[in-house]
């Protein structure tokens, strides 16, 4: 049952988006987020949306995944919509008046605008995790953050922790499955009852899991020491990240997009926000 959990959301592929340098992908994704927040009206927002759509098409990822990535965030979107709808007061006559609640035209447009923005934001973020393997992401984060070493920020340690976490997720899931079966075999009831009862039933699963995780950690530390691990200093990497022509093109395209958004903002009177 637990084995169905996918780790990360990576979908391997050979598209141009997959092959972009992961460091560039992270930076470009941040640029995209900034661009979304710069977009001040529906035209520029639509432009950003079209841009993301083209990227999805280039990456050859199924469109169904877009909806999949949106599903968990739906409550947040609805909540933001309702807040904006009810609490923004306009100057004109309210559209609807229901007791103490009144809805204005401005509220309605802002709420739609915010919703679309959040949706584009999520879609844009997930294209990164869909097309970049967790290892590449960790590598990229380690390298992008490496200037922070000067400030004594433990960049290498952070990346090492992420790698080990990724490595042990499947192992620990398997172990949880085993422990659950073992406890069920002794008559533990894990599936029925209210929330509190279910949470309490998890204790006999979690305690052995923690004990074993600590034991694993100590053994792993020993094995790492035997393989001459001494932290990040003087360490080399087998796989070197290389950036090429396509990464420069990607940066250029992003630059053009931001310029277009800025132009749209200026040429069309800024709406609301």
């Amino acid at each position: 049952m637990l084995k169905d959990i996918t780790i990360g959301q990576y979908f391997p592929g050979e598209s141009i988006i997959h092959r972009l340098d992961s460091r560039f992908k992270i930076i470009l994704d941040i640029a995209y987020v900034v661009m979304l927040f710069m977009a001040g009206n529906f035209y520029s927002l639509a432009m950003a949306g079209v841009f993301m759509l083209i990227i999805y098409m280039l990456s050859r990822i199924s469109f169904r995944l877009i909806f999949k990535s949106l599903r968990p965030i739906m409550p947040v979107i609805v909540f933001t919509c309702l807040l904006n709808l009810f609490f923004i007061q306009g100057e004109s006559e309210p559209l609807v008046r229901l007791g103490f609640i009144s809805i204005y035209m401005e509220g309605a447009t802002t709420s739609v605008f915010m919703a679309v923005r959040i949706i584009f934001l999520i879609i844009g973020m997930s294209v990164l995790t869909y097309t970049t393997s967790p290892i590449e992401l960790t590598d990229a984060i380690e390298r992008l953050l490496s200037p922070l070493k000067v400030l004594r920020f433990p960049v290498h340690e952070l990346a090492m922790m992420m790698t080990i976490a990724l490595r042990f997720i499947p192992t620990l899931i398997e172990e949880t499955d085993k422990i659950m079966s073992a406890q069920k075999a002794r008559g533990a009831n894990l599936d029925t009852g209210g929330l509190v009862k279910k949470a309490k039933a998890l204790i006999p699963v979690l305690i052995p899991l923690f004990v074993s995780a600590f034991k694993r950690a100590s053994e792993l530390a020993l094995a790492m020491e035997c393989r001459c691990y001494k932290g990040g200093d003087g360490r080399t990497r087998m796989k070197q990240l290389k950036w090429g022509m396509r990464d420069i093109v990607a940066v250029f395209v992003m630059g053009v997009m931001i310029a277009v958004i800025v132009l749209l903002n200026i040429s069309i009177p800024i709406f609301g926000l």
Binding site: P134, T171, R227, Y229, T236
Partner: peptide, 22 residues
């Protein structure tokens, strides 16, 4: 299970050599 550090086989085999700065 408790000796393998990396998420891909070849990365794990490279671990010791990366530590040694090869």
């Amino acid at each position: 299970d408790n000796q393998i550090v990396a998420t891909v086989v070849e990365e794990d085999v490279a671990f010791a050599l990366e530590n040694l700065g090869v």
